[in-house]
């Protein structure tokens, strides 16, 4: 089983821990956490990730800006990106998808939904 690297970019420690806790149940994954968009970009430049989960509303650099920058990076043009949003934030969600995000999950986060999404996006081609 190959090792997949997943980056969680989320300013809330509770959410980061919750998402990481759920994803750790997948076999062969390594999880890296970033607390905002800038921290996320730093981590993306230092190593290659197979899946990126990012919150939209974050300080310093929000998720929309991050998705846009990541999609313009040749190394991450095809890497799956999942945005974390609220059901009410429909415009942000649509904007994220139009910028190149692959999917989204809404709060309150349900572990099985994150797992299903990660499994489907990490499926080998």
């Amino acid at each position: 089983m190959p090792e997949y690297k997943i980056l969680i970019i989320e300013d809330s420690p509770t959410m980061r821990q919750l998402i990481a806790f759920a994803l750790k149940r997948l076999q062969g994954v390594r999880i890296v956490e970033a607390h905002d968009g800038v921290d996320g970009l730093k981590k993306l430049s230092s190593e290659k990730f197979d899946l990126i989960l990012t919150d939209i509303n974050m300080p310093v650099m929000d998720g929309l800006k991050l998705v846009s920058l990541v999609r313009n990076d040749a190394n991450y043009r095809t890497t799956p990106i999942v945005v974390i949003t609220t059901e009410g934030a429909k415009e942000d969600r649509e904007r994220a998808l139009s910028l190149g995000a692959n999917d989204y999950i809404t709060k309150p986060i349900q572990a099985n939904k994150i797992l299903d999404l990660a499994r489907s996006l990490l499926k080998p081609a």
Partner: peptide
Amino acid sequence: VESENNNLANLYIASYQLHS
């Protein structure tokens, strides 16, 4: 069991964060 596991994870994280 999955559901219970998720719930326990939520409770654990909530508790862990509250006392962090």
